[in-house]
Design a binder for these strands. Structure first.
Length: 484
RNA sequence: GGCGGCGUACCCAAGUGGCUAAGGGAGAGGUCUGCAAAACCUCGAUUCACCGGUUCAAAUCCGGUCGCCGCCUCCA
């Protein structure tokens, strides 16, 4: 398996520290507001990485943190007039709700900054003792000039940065690039006792403390959004390696941004869409598919149109799945071979192709492409009207492979019925299943009498409400119109 | 200014030295159907922003030009 490593700028063979085991740390969110689709992308990308490594037989320990004390949380608490820890609690719960809907599983360990104050203080103390950090008025700063490799992850030179520094000048720092490890608290702010007086952790130290505690001083993979490379991950790496004297992380992985009108989606620009509002209009699987359709490092332009196309793609899957299940249930037992070579060939190479795609830096876009090739092939096969046990076995095998690979992506896991029920909600179809079935029955009667005008008017009526009818040999099936 | 990325059909998108440039959506024609829908078939980039170069061979490597974006400040 090869993974793109931000540190080296190349795809590298993935070799874990301990054979068969992988430790992953992904930066979660600061819980001060609702999550937007960009947060969803990051969560989904690393969820898929985790699932795929498990699929590949690795024993995975996945750690994802919550930043639950921070300036933003404090500001938000003041805005809302509630205690800071309630802000954190509220948005942590919201995170679980949103991500759960998107099929993101909780990590194996989900540490919070406030639960690791002791570990944080120990590291800060250690850094002062080793001469990497200094204290001023209850604040502790990391002295960047003491760490010659500073900038190695984000590929920047401290000289260039100083030249163009627009950093707010903090008189207490020896150098504008120095960053806070510990911040003295003002009255009324959250604070913990420390050797430097009451205070709270700085911006980056929590991730060092939590990752090292749960994964060890050197671990395999560290992930997050590309905007965390600098300064967050650079600083995290610096303080961690200064503290332990060991390499911190073997593979750094960063996902690309979601853009709107080509611009990065962000809180400050106000051009963001929350997960909640998108899920009012689209099924969660659509959102997940939309995000995995593009390689994780590329930017994705957000648009309703693209989401509708993703919806149409997933519908193609469920239409085929229904056809597959129908065939398995109803096909006659009389053996009729019908040119199964192409399908058999594809079945035998499919799993390998899927793995090759995913092994190549988690190329979910290509993997999904392979899935749709198999979908086309099984449709071709079914179009030839085969029957008998051998055909059923092949189709069954196709179904299993689609489910197996889909489940790695946490896609395609429902029944067609569940899919259409969800679409009915999301699209506000003003009909119940019972009403639809009643109209179908009425139409069947008309069809028996060859009253085509009436049959067609019922079809039209349902079509207007977003329900499509499909006449089959043994009855009429309905589904929700998509893509429109 | 420094560093990095991107530009592939109408739209999205994979492909980074060599078989027919994946896949999805939209469109046109066809098969099937009472009519439809779905599915399938055919059509659709002799071409990968542009210009040079390397090579037997380039969308893929090198140089340049144009355009777009990101990071350098909290940010997934």
């Amino acid at each position: 398996m090869r993974l793109y490593n931000t540190m080296t700028g190349k795809k590298e063979d993935f070799v874990p520290i301990q054979e068969g085991k992988v430790g992953i740390y992904a930066c979660g969110v600061t819980v001060y507001d609702n999550c937007h689709i960009g947060h969803a992308r990051s969560a989904i990308v690393f969820d898929v990485l985790r699932q795929y490594l498990k699929y590949r037989g690795f024993e995975v320990k996945f750690v994802k943190n919550f930043t639950d004390v921070d300036d933003k949380i404090i500001n938000r608490a003041n805005e809302l007039g509630i205690p800071w820890n309630e802000v954190a609690k509220k948005y942590t719960e919201k995170y679980y709700e949103d991500m759960g809907r998107l099929g993101v599983e909780p990590a194996d360990v989900e540490p919070k900054a406030t639960e690791h104050i002791k570990e944080i203080i120990d590291i800060v103390k250690g850094l002062i003792e080793k001469g990497y950090a200094y204290e001023v008025d209850g604040n502790v700063y990391f002295e960047v000039s003491k760490f010659p490799e500073y900038g190695k992850l984000s590929k920047r030179d401290t000289k260039d940065m100083q030249a163009g520094a627009r950093v707010e000048i903090d008189e207490r720092k020896r150098n504008p690039l120095d960053f806070a490890l510990w911040k003295a608290s003002k009255p009324g702010e959250p604070s913990w006792e420390s050797p430097w007086g009451p205070g709270r952790p700085g911006w980056h130290i929590e991730c060092s403390a939590m990752s090292m505690k749960h994964l060890g001083e050197t671990f395999d993979i560290h992930g997050g959004g590309a905007d965390l490379i600098f300064p967050h991950h650079e600083n995290e790496l610096t303080q961690s390696e200064a503290f332990t004297g060991k390499p911190f992380v073997r593979y750094w992985m960063h996902n690309g941004f979601i853009t709107v009108d080509k611009e990065k989606m962000s809180k400050s620009l106000g051009n963001f869409f929350t997960i909640e509002e998108i899920l009012d209009k689209f099924d969660p699987e659509v959102v997940r598919f939309f995000l995995l359709q593009t390689h994780y490092r590329s930017p994705i332009e957000f648009s309703d149109e693209q989401l509708r196309e993703a919806e149409a793609s997933i519908d193609r899957y469920y239409v085929t799945l229904r056809r597959i299940e129908d065939f398995i249930k109803k096909a006659p037992d009389t053996e009729k071979s019908a040119g199964s070579e192409a399908l058999e060939e594809m079945l035998s190479s499919f799993r390998t192709k899927f793995k090759e795609a995913m092994d190549d830096d988690l190329n979910t876009a290509l993997a999904i492409g392979h899935i749709f090739e198999l979908i086309r092939e099984v449709n071709r096969f079914l179009d030839r009207r085969p029957s008998g046990q051998k055909a059923k076995t092949l189709v069954e095998e196709t179904k299993n492979l689609l489910k197996e690979t889909g489940s790695v992506l946490r896609l395609f896991g429902r029944t067609p019925e569940q899919w259409y029920r969800s679409l009915m909600k999301v699209k506000n179809i003003g009909l119940t299943e019972e009403e639809i079935l009643a109209l179908i029955n009425e139409r069947q009667e008309a069809r028996k009498q060859k009253d085509w005008a009436k049959a067609d008017s019922i079809r039209e009526e349902l079509d207007k409400k977003g329900i499509i009818l499909e006449d089959k040999k043994d009855g009429t099936e309905w589904r929700v119109k998509v893509g429109g």
